[in-house]
Each structure stands twice: as structure tokens, then as C-alpha cells.
Nucleic acid binder design. Structure first.
Length: 270
DNA sequence: TCAAGATGATCAG
DNA sequence: TGATCCTCTTGAT
């Protein structure tokens, strides 16, 4: 259940575990058997992420494209190799470890042309040094949809999911239903800069921590606020609980099928 | 033991 | 906008 920083870490972990080695590729579940056969015995040349997409390039010019979706997982384990349990779509076995892919929304072999097509459709990724935030602003600024909906749109920002959306909007004190066309360049730049920092921290730690001592005055520190995803957050999944800053109840609402969280006092509508 | 929900995206209408 | 796909965890019974 990843956001962009998780995919970034996963790509690095896969590169470390399998990069430069021939892998054994199987589909214990059977749904990916034909494609797995094309990868079996091939050398993994590189593993990279873009937004929430993962790309593994092999020495036969095939690229494995994976999108974990809401529920997918790609778990790397150390040898010895255990028998697969549950629904393992793809298993890669390397010299000293193996990785099991489950529940992915997308798992396919693609060419360089298709790779370019996927990348073209993505907005700027805050984790990539070559990202151009102005492209995201252009999409945001000409849309009447809410900033809450637009932050989840991967054509606007690649890699941002429900947690980063809720937390970055809280930290910017922006109401999630503010129309995108009313987001100024200055506000957009502040949002972008914050997401770059938050997601880079997520890459380092593997957690989404939005409440950190260096971000908030000592007086605001109270009891630990760890969500079950493993990080400290202000509003995500805290509906009905008091806001850590002002004490009013955190609100929630379904927006385009996803839960939205915000504090109506700290994030007033303008 | 079982149903609901979840860090997501796509497609049809 | 709603239905659908995918798997696992959590919480209710």
C-alpha cells in the first residue's frame, strides 16, 4: 500500500538484491506464467521508480512494469527460499534473496516505447531531481476541481497518495476543497517544497512522518501520534479526534471515492 | 469466523 | 460517477 517514497525505496532494494545477477522468475499463482518465462534466467540491469510505478529492466530489452495499486506488495526476503504462500503473482529469486509480488494492479512486460508513454502521462515526481514543478502547477491552475482531488491526480503530481495529500494540505493550512484554479504560484511552490522534503524523509526512514520537532515548536509536542502505517501525522485517519494544533475535531469526507481528512479551523476555506 | 476497509487506477456509461 | 480488480488486516460478532 505504497506512496511514491515506498516505490523509490523498493526500487533501490531490488537493485541491491538482484541488480547485475541472473534471476529465476516464476509465477506460483499462474497468472503471470508466460511473461515470467521470458524473464527466467535473465540479468536484471536496473530497477527504477517513477511516481508509484516500478520498472525493472532486463538484459533482453524487456521491462517489467509494476503498479502495486491500493493493496499490492513486493516483499524481499533473505535466503533460504521458502515455499510461496497465498497469491504470489511473481517470484524473483537471486543469489542471496528472493522477492514475492502480490496483489498488484499492474504487472506486465513492456517495451521502451510503452515506458515512454507511461512516463509522459505522469506529472512531476517530488523525489526526482529532474522534476519540473511548473508542469504540475499548469495543470492545477487551469482546473476547477478541488486541490484535494488534484493532489491525488498522478498527472499533476506523481507519487503523492492519500497520506501525503492530507498532511501536506494541513501543513500548508489549505482547505482541501479549494479550487485548483485559486492556488497561487507562491502557494504551489510552498506545497511542492514541502512535499520534496517530506517524501525525501520518507525515503530515508520508510515512514511518513509529518509531525517532526524541527517542523513544530516544542509547545505543540504532546503524546506520540503514530498511525498504524507507522508514522506521526496531523489529520490522516484521525477523523473525530482533536486537532493537535487547535483542538477542534478532525473532519472527514469521501472525495472521488477516497477518504479526505482535514481540520476545518486550521484549514479554513478562503 | 466473516465482512469491511484500505497508502490506487481504469473503464463503461 | 459508479463498478471493478487485486490481497491482506482489522474489528465486529
Amino acid at each position: 500500500m505504497p506512496e511514491g517514497h515506498t516505490l523509490y525505496r523498493l526500487a533501490a532494494d531490488l537493485q541491491r538484491a538482484f541488480g547485475g545477477h541472473a534471476v529465476v522468475a516464476k509465477s506460483p499463482q499462474g497468472r503471470f506464467s508466460e511473461s515470467a518465462a521470458l524473464l527466467d534466467g535473465r540479468v536484471l540491469e536496473s530497477a527504477e521508480s517513477a511516481g508509484k510505478h516500478l520498472f525493472l529492466r532486463f538484459d533482453n530489452d524487456l521491462i517489467l512494469h509494476v503498479h502495486l495499486g491500493l493493496i499490492g506488495g513486493f516483499r524481499i526476503s533473505s535466503a533460504p527460499v521458502e515455499p510461496p504462500f497465498g497469491e504470489v503473482r511473481l517470484r524473483l529469486v537471486g543469489p542471496s534473496s528472493y522477492a514475492d509480488l502480490r496483489g498488484a494492479t499492474r504487472c506486465e512486460l513492456i517495451s521502451d516505447e510503452k515506458l515512454d508513454l507511461v512516463l509522459t502521462r505522469l506529472g512531476p515526481d517530488p523525489l526526482r531531481a529532474d522534476a519540473d514543478p511548473d508542469r504540475g502547477f499548469a495543470r492545477m491552475h487551469r482546473s476547477g476541481k478541488s486541490v484535494g482531488a488534484l493532489l491525488m491526480d498522478q498527472r499533476v503530481l506523481a507519487g503523492v497518495g492519500n497520506i501525503f495529500r492530507a498532511e501536506s494540505l494541513f501543513r500548508a493550512r489549505l482547505h482541501p476543497l479549494t479550487p485548483g484554479e485559486r492556488i497561487t504560484k507562491r502557494r504551489w511552490n510552498a506545497l511542492w517544497t514541502d512535499l520534496v522534503a517530506l517524501m525525501a524523509y520518507g525515503v530515508q526512514t520508510g515512514r511518513i512522518d509529518t509531525v517532526r520537532p524541527e517542523h513544530e515548536p516544542e509547545a505543540m509536542r504532546r503524546e506520540p501520534r503514530v498511525d498504524r502505517h507507522g508514522g506521526e501525522v496531523y489529520v490522516y485517519r484521525r477523523s473525530g479526534q482533536p486537532c493537535h494544533v487547535c483542538g477542534s475535531k478532525v473532519k472527514t469526507q469521501l472525495l472521488e471515492g477516497r477518504n479526505l481528512y482535514w481540520c476545518s479551523v486550521c484549514q479554513r476555506r478562503r
